[in-house]
C-alpha cells in the first residue's frame, strides 16, 4: 500500500478517489492537485511510481494543511470564538447549531438524542 503525505494509506482505487481518504482533501481538491502535478486521474494508486508518490506528497504538504494540522486549526478557531464569547462561540458552548438553523424541530446532530419531556404536547402522560 502506498503512503502519501505521512500517515495516510489509500487503497487500490483510482488515485483521485484514493487521495480523498486524506483528511482535508475532497474530490474537487483531489483533481485540482492531480492536474497540478500532471498525474492522470484514473491511474490506480498502487501503479504510481515512487517518485510520483513523493512528488504528490511534497506538493500536498507544501500547499495545503491536512490531517492533524487541519484538525488543530479547526479546534483553535472554535476555541478562539468560545474565548471571546461572540455569537458563534456561544452556540458552540451550548452545543446548538451555529449557522442559524432552526431549533424548534430537528438540530438533533448538535443537540444529541431526543430528551422526552412528559406533559409536553403530543407526549402521552405516563401513569
Amino acid at each position: 500500500m502506498p503512503r502519501i503525505a505521512g500517515i495516510d494509506i489509500p487503497a487500490d482505487k483510482r488515485i483521485v478517489i484514493a487521495l480523498t481518504y486524506v483528511y482535508g482533501i475532497g474530490k474537487a481538491l483531489s483533481s485540482e492537485i492531480l492536474k497540478e502535478v500532471n498525474i492522470d486521474e484514473s491511474v490506480r494508486a498502487k501503479d504510481l511510481h515512487e517518485d510520483q508518490l513523493s512528488m504528490l506528497g511534497a506538493y500536498i504538504e507544501k500547499n495545503f494543511s491536512i490531517e492533524g494540522q487541519l484538525r488543530r486549526q479547526e479546534m483553535q478557531n472554535v476555541a478562539r470564538m468560545k474565548s471571546i464569547a461572540c455569537y458563534r462561540g456561544i452556540r458552540h458552548k451550548l452545543g446548538l447549531p451555529v449557522r442559524g438553523q432552526r431549533t424548534k424541530t430537528n438540530a438533533r446532530t448538535r443537540k444529541g438524542r431526543k430528551k422526552t419531556v412528559a406533559g409536553k404536547k403530543g407526549v402521552k402522560e405516563l401513569g
Binding site: R80, S83, I84, A85, C86, Y87, R88, I90
Partner: peptide, 15 residues
C-alpha cells in the same frame, strides 16, 4: 474590545 475580536461585528457580543 481585544485584538481577537477584530473582524467580528459589534452585535455578535450582545445577545
Amino acid at each position: 474590545v481585544t485584538d481577537d475580536m477584530v473582524g467580528h461585528k459589534l452585535g455578535e457580543f450582545a445577545p
